[in-house]
Design a protein around this nucleic acid. Sequence first.
DNA 1: CTCCAGGACAAGC
DNA 2: GCTTGTCATGGA
Length: 210
Amino acid sequence: MEVYQHLYERYGQLDWWPANSLYEMMLGAVLTQNTAWSNVEKALERLGTHISPEEIEAMSEEELAEKIRPAGFFNQKALYIRALTQWYKGYGYRREAVEAKDLRFLRRELLEIKGIGRETADCILLYGFNKPTFVIDAYTKRLLARLRLVPSEKQDYEPLRLRFQEALPRDVFLYNNYHALIVINAKTCCRKKSPLCPQCPLESICGGEL
DNA sequence: CTCCAGGACAAGC
DNA sequence: GCTTGTCATGGA
């Protein structure tokens, strides 16, 4: 918890994920795949704030792709969003219906959806449906590499996720805030590949435990 | 101009 | 199983 402590002292409790609704959160998770968040914002804005799954369903494939164009990979992401929306429809677009299922079941279901890989699934589960699964993204890998907790940024997803989960108490709020802190910190400082910038809250840490 | 950003998939080994 | 080419925009 050492790394977490330092980040928490700097940024505090974030209660994170930039979205106005659960559905918008899910859209953001797909749209941000290998894409700068500023471009995701443009795409979400073009869809209109408080976009509903029913509205997305009413759109044609081309129409949706055109709307999300600024986010890049728009043809694929249009497919992915439709597939994800179809899945959600199976639960009547009801949050409680999804949350009633357990984590392992939902994770398997999400991973079967075209365009929903491990990271996107975990984001949706953690930030969308409050399930305790840890999110591993590029920022997380970069952080681990800089702290020398792993030899390089090229690490497999699952071992890293389990490493975090085994090192931390199984708490959805902790998982949520921890990953949020990693993202916020990455966007705030330590941009490029400098080891760790001087003003980084983790500057003094060397090999501490997560 | 090049490089990169909160990945995922299909094809090939 | 693991690795590689592909998908695309907008900003630095």
